[in-house]
Amino acid sequence: MEIKDRPKIAIKKTKLEIAIDVTTIILFVIFTVYFTQQWRTLPNELPIHFNMKGEPDGWGGKWVAWIPLIIGLILWIGLSKLEKYPHTYNYLNLNLENAERQYKNARIMINIMKAEITILFMYISWMIIGSSSEKESAINNGWIPILIFIIVLFGSIAFFIHRSFKLK
Results as ranks from 00 to 15, higher is better:
E2I: 07
K8R: 13
A10G: 02
A10I: 12
T14N: 07
L16N: 01
I18L: 11
A19V: 02
D21A: 01
D21L: 06
I30K: 09
V33A: 09
W39E: 09
T41I: 07
T41V: 08
P47H: 07
I48P: 08
N51L: 09
D57E: 10
V64E: 12
A65F: 03
A65R: 02
G72M: 07
L73H: 04
W76N: 13
L79G: 09
S80M: 12
K81W: 10
L82M: 15
E83F: 05
T88Q: 14
L96T: 05
E97M: 06
R101Y: 00
R101L: 01
K104T: 00
K104G: 00
N105D: 03
A106K: 03
I110N: 05
E116V: 07
I117C: 05
T118S: 11
Y123M: 13
I128R: 12
I129M: 09
S133N: 09
E134D: 11
E134Q: 09
K135H: 07
E136N: 08
S137W: 02
W143N: 15
P145C: 06
P145M: 06
L147V: 13
I150K: 14
I151P: 09
V152Q: 12
L153P: 05
F160M: 06
I161R: 09
I161N: 11
R163P: 04
R163H: 08
K166L: 14
L167K: 14
